[in-house]
């Protein structure tokens, strides 16, 4: 666990750079984390991010399949939005913990 300043806000992150407290998340933080991952956030990205945050707050375990059934993106589009790690990168940008999911 470490203190880090992202987009001018002091936040706590874990070893892998995921926010420890999703409550500290802001849109500006999302933009900064996305930049580190070479992702330019579009409206579609935000829709996915809000979906993930909503599900996380409800306590629903997140999987790629759930995102694919969200009606926002299909799985192929999800991979295109967050290349190289759709679920982990989107979660990181959304300021929620890395999903402990194998599917």
């Amino acid at each position: 666990m470490a203190e880090k300043t992202i987009a001018g806000t002091a936040v706590t992150v874990n070893d892998e750079g995921y926010l420890e407290d999703p409550g500290q998340w802001t849109k500006e933080i999302a933009v900064e984390i996305a930049k580190e991952l070479n992702i330019d956030l579009s409206d579609k990205h935000y829709e996915v991010i809000h979906f993930l945050r909503e599900k996380f707050m409800e306590g629903t375990p997140l999987t790629i399949r759930k995102v694919g059934k969200s009606g926002i993106v299909d799985i192929k589009e999800f991979y295109k939005l967050f290349p190289g790690g759709p679920l982990k990168f989107s979660s990181k940008i959304a300021g929620i913990p890395k999903p402990a999911s194998c599917v």
Binding site: P61, G68, I75, F78, V103
Partner: peptide, 18 residues
């Protein structure tokens, strides 16, 4: 229950990811 899909859907997920 664990969100593990049927075989055809699982194959689609894998090919969707390349």
């Amino acid at each position: 229950k664990l969100d593990i899909p049927p075989i055809d859907e699982f194959l689609e997920m894998i090919t969707a990811g390349g």
